[in-house]
Amino acid sequence: MSDEEFDDESDANELEKEGEDGEEEKESAEQEEERLISNPLTEEIMKEGLSLLCKTGNGLAHAYVKLEAKEKDLTDIGLLQNYIHLRYVDLSENQLRDLSPLGSLIHLLWLKVDGNRLTSATLQELPYLQIASFAHNHIKDTEGISHPRLGSLNLKGNKIQVISGLDPGKLANLHTLELRGNKIETTAGLHLPKLKNLYLAQNSISRLEGLQDLVQLTTLHLRDNQLVTLDGFSSNMKCLQYLNLRGNGITGLQEVAKLQVLPMLRALVLLDNPCADEGDYRLEILVLLSHLERLDKDFYEQEERMEAEELRQHRQEEEQDTEESGPGEPN
């Protein structure tokens, strides 16, 4: 056989091999999908994951009320409909797309379904659910969440762009909302007067809207967004004590002056904003916000407070003199 013939045969064999490899990869992908589709929750997994024996709701029997079934590649949890006494369920790091069987768990208090394939957090109303975590899924909105006793909701690391459907009448006890690491562009849609802690870091927020309804909010995280102005804060926010604005685009201290409408603000974080590079930054912030106790990582010392008070009074006297002399009078 000539070298040329050998090369041609080698090329043909290589192409055939590549074709076989491609088919194998395709078959592997199909098998993977088939494996995901056909991996339901089983009695054996339930037996391994059940714990915490307690009295049932009527007190006449006992049942296991806690289930942990993490990292099982589960695609179907239909079996859970038979375990109506469950109160604590952790189904994190599976392949779940459908949570409808959880609607039968009317005694559920605590739910964690982080790291699945969910595109929605919609669930049938669960009357006793208090803590729910849907972190790191593919959820695109905040619709369909209506659990009357829900206190803490975690939607971190999803694909939410707009906050909508959070009905204060159906979420009357929601005090903590975690929306870090989504694609949210505005704070509009947060009509939750009982909310105390709101985490909105690592989004694309450029507009602060609808904050006037957050009358009980004490903590607000807005780190690593796209804010350049601080319009939108409201004097209705009488409880806000901690505000994190690190890593935005706030350039001038005149924007910080807009925070004077927040009477209880005690801790402010402005690191990694252009305004933090201005001269006498710490002093100027304290002149504007006299009730502030901590800026960035450091508490204000008494000496700083005295200096800020003197500077504030001096500027007030200068303004008063200017007003009395009038703008048209010669020096």
Score class of each variant (00 low, 15 high):
residue 180 R to C: 04
residue 87 R to Y: 03
residue 182 N to G: 03
residue 234 S to E: 06
residue 295 L to N: 11
residue 66 K to D: 05
residue 90 D to L: 06
residue 300 Y to M: 03
residue 188 A to V: 02
residue 319 E to K: 14
residue 181 G to Q: 03
residue 155 L to N: 07
residue 4 E to S: 01
residue 195 L to E: 10
residue 51 S to C: 06
residue 11 D to L: 12
residue 217 L to Y: 10
residue 133 S to T: 15
residue 188 A to M: 07
residue 152 S to K: 10
residue 54 C to A: 06
residue 145 I to N: 02
residue 274 P to C: 09
residue 131 I to A: 05
residue 9 E to Q: 11
residue 202 Q to I: 03
residue 56 T to C: 12
residue 116 N to I: 03
residue 271 L to H: 04
residue 203 N to E: 05
residue 22 G to V: 12
residue 44 E to N: 00
residue 100 S to I: 04
residue 136 H to R: 13
residue 141 D to Q: 09
residue 24 E to A: 15
residue 73 D to R: 12
residue 232 G to Q: 02
residue 187 T to L: 04
residue 3 D to M: 01
residue 180 R to L: 08
residue 116 N to M: 01
residue 186 T to E: 05
residue 41 L to T: 09
residue 320 Q to T: 13
residue 299 F to Q: 05
residue 195 L to R: 05
residue 124 Q to S: 14
residue 120 S to Q: 06
residue 4 E to C: 00
residue 151 G to Q: 14
residue 75 T to C: 15
residue 119 T to M: 03
residue 151 G to A: 15
residue 126 L to I: 10
residue 93 E to Q: 11
residue 327 P to Y: 01
residue 8 D to K: 12
residue 166 L to W: 05
residue 67 L to T: 08
residue 144 G to Y: 11
residue 144 G to A: 09
residue 215 V to L: 10
residue 29 A to E: 15
residue 8 D to G: 00
residue 146 S to D: 11
residue 131 I to Y: 14
residue 124 Q to D: 14
residue 165 G to P: 04
residue 65 V to G: 05
residue 6 F to C: 06
residue 286 L to Q: 09
residue 258 K to Q: 11
residue 162 V to A: 04
residue 232 G to N: 08
residue 193 P to A: 13
residue 148 P to Q: 01
residue 138 H to W: 08
residue 265 L to D: 06
residue 227 L to F: 12
residue 280 D to R: 10
residue 109 L to I: 07
residue 195 L to K: 03
residue 298 D to H: 14
residue 155 L to C: 11
residue 202 Q to R: 02
residue 307 E to C: 10
residue 151 G to T: 12
residue 7 D to V: 15
residue 262 L to V: 09
residue 71 E to G: 04
residue 246 R to Y: 00
residue 298 D to F: 10
residue 223 R to Y: 01
residue 143 E to Q: 14
residue 272 D to I: 00
residue 307 E to T: 14
residue 46 M to V: 03
residue 286 L to H: 11
residue 161 Q to D: 11
residue 13 N to P: 00
residue 31 Q to H: 09
residue 126 L to M: 12
residue 196 K to H: 11
residue 59 G to L: 07
residue 110 W to N: 13
residue 189 G to K: 05
residue 61 A to G: 12
residue 57 G to L: 08
residue 101 P to F: 00
residue 13 N to M: 09
residue 201 A to I: 06
residue 79 L to N: 10
residue 45 I to A: 10
residue 120 S to D: 05
residue 178 E to N: 12
residue 55 K to T: 09
residue 40 P to A: 13
residue 173 N to V: 02
residue 91 L to A: 15
residue 93 E to M: 08
residue 247 G to N: 05
residue 277 D to C: 02
residue 34 E to N: 09
residue 107 H to C: 03
residue 121 A to G: 13
residue 109 L to A: 02
residue 217 L to N: 13
residue 231 D to Y: 11
residue 136 H to V: 07
residue 27 E to W: 01
residue 162 V to P: 01
residue 37 I to A: 15
residue 165 G to L: 08
residue 218 T to H: 05
residue 288 L to C: 04
residue 179 L to M: 08
residue 148 P to D: 12
residue 118 L to E: 11
residue 125 E to W: 01
